[in-house]
């Protein structure tokens, strides 16, 4: 029994670790898409954030400066996204796709040019990273059966970005449904004309949303390279931006459900390492690839309308133009 509990706690612990970048990217996408801007480019923003954070941290030795750099890089990408899709009224999807390639190309290219390590940034250690925080009494309570263990393993011992990610979700829900900004944000994603005729700038509101997106996804990227890992490597976002997007669709653009879906996807990620090579009763061995594909397959099934319907914000994907 004891060992099962430890096993489960460990899997849940890594679920949390793996879910954090998904949660941050998902919340980032939520602001953007609720404002009516489809964000295929989350993946690229995440990757750019990860690279900038690791590079800055490696050079300055400060994780916090790294974090700022991650946000700044994501901000730059969001800026391009906004310029193309809001100011120039271009296609949001195409510019998002472009951002993903831009990040994939630039991070490796600049990484090689600057650090000459085949696209890797130098190994980070100590203050160059966000290290685990031991919550009060965690060590003392460690020996207390079950609750103490859960507190020690699951709740305590994460880095500050992890805690931040779990705070972002309720804050987002509150902002979205309880504040003036949230009301306007939801309105501009549903019917920008209603916002325009109320005398509020659609352009400004959408850019504001993109700024929040950039901050969150930049932090998510920084988490990948300077909290979860000790440095940047090629394409380290590895499709997490897309998974976050899938989670957002799955959660029907609502913060609470989005958290649950991200945790579920994180859990799938966590178990795939554990079940490798293991045989289960009846079903036998489950291929790792089946678990890897599961989030995508589930999202396809959802999109096909077989389990509920995912209705996007009505104006998402459409640049706003005043018409005659």
């Amino acid at each position: 029994m004891e060992s099962y509990l430890v096993d489960i706690t460990l899997i849940l612990d890594s679920t949390v670790r793996l879910a954090v970048p998904l949660i941050l990217a998902c919340m980032a996408g939520l602001y953007s898409e609720r404002a009516g801007i489809v964000d295929i480019g989350l993946e690229g923003k995440l990757l750019a954030g990860a690279f900038a954070a690791a590079a800055m941290s490696a050079v300055t030795g400060s994780a916090w400066l790294g974090l700022l750099a991650g946000i700044a890089a994501a901000m730059m990408f969001s800026g391009i996204h906004g310029l193309a899709s809001i100011t120039l009224k271009g296609n949001q999807t195409i510019s998002g796709v472009a951002l993903n390639f831009l990040a994939a190309g630039l991070t490796t290219f600049l990484g090689q040019s600057w650090f000459k390590r085949g696209g890797y940034t130098p190994q980070l250690s100590g203050d160059q990273r966000f290290n685990p925080i031991t919550l009060p009494f965690a060590n003392e309570l460690r020996e207390v059966p079950i609750l103490g263990q859960i507190y020690y393993e699951l709740i305590s011992g994460h880095n500050i970005i992890t805690y931040f990610a779990f705070i972002v979700v309720p804050v987002t829900a509150w902002v979205l449904f309880r504040t003036r900004f949230g009301l306007r944000l939801r309105a501009v994603g549903e019917n920008p004309k209603a916002i325009d005729t109320a005398g509020i700038s659609v352009t400004r509101l959408r850019f504001q949303a993109l700024v929040i997106t950039a901050v969150l996804v930049g932090i998510g990227g920084a988490y990948l390279s300077i909290a979860q890992s000790a440095g940047f490597n090629n394409n380290m976002s590895a499709g997490r931006g897309y998974i976050a997007l899938a989670a957002l669709i799955f959660a029907k653009w609502r913060p609470g459900p989005a958290l649950l879906v991200c945790l579920m996807f994180g859990f799938l990620d966590a178990v795939q390492f554990r079940i490798q090579g293991q045989s289960f009763p009846i079903i036998g061995e489950v291929p790792v690839q089946a678990i890897q594909a599961l989030p995508y397959v589930l999202t396809v099934i959802l999109l096909a309308g077989f389990i509920g319907r995912a209705v996007a914000p009505k104006a998402a994907g459409i640049p706003y133009t005043k018409e005659r």
Partner: peptide, 14 residues
């Protein structure tokens, strides 16, 4: 890949 991205950006999105 960067050039590829810039081409998509400038000829597609913008």
């Amino acid at each position: 890949v960067t050039i590829q991205a810039l081409v998509i950006l400038f000829t597609g999105a913008m």
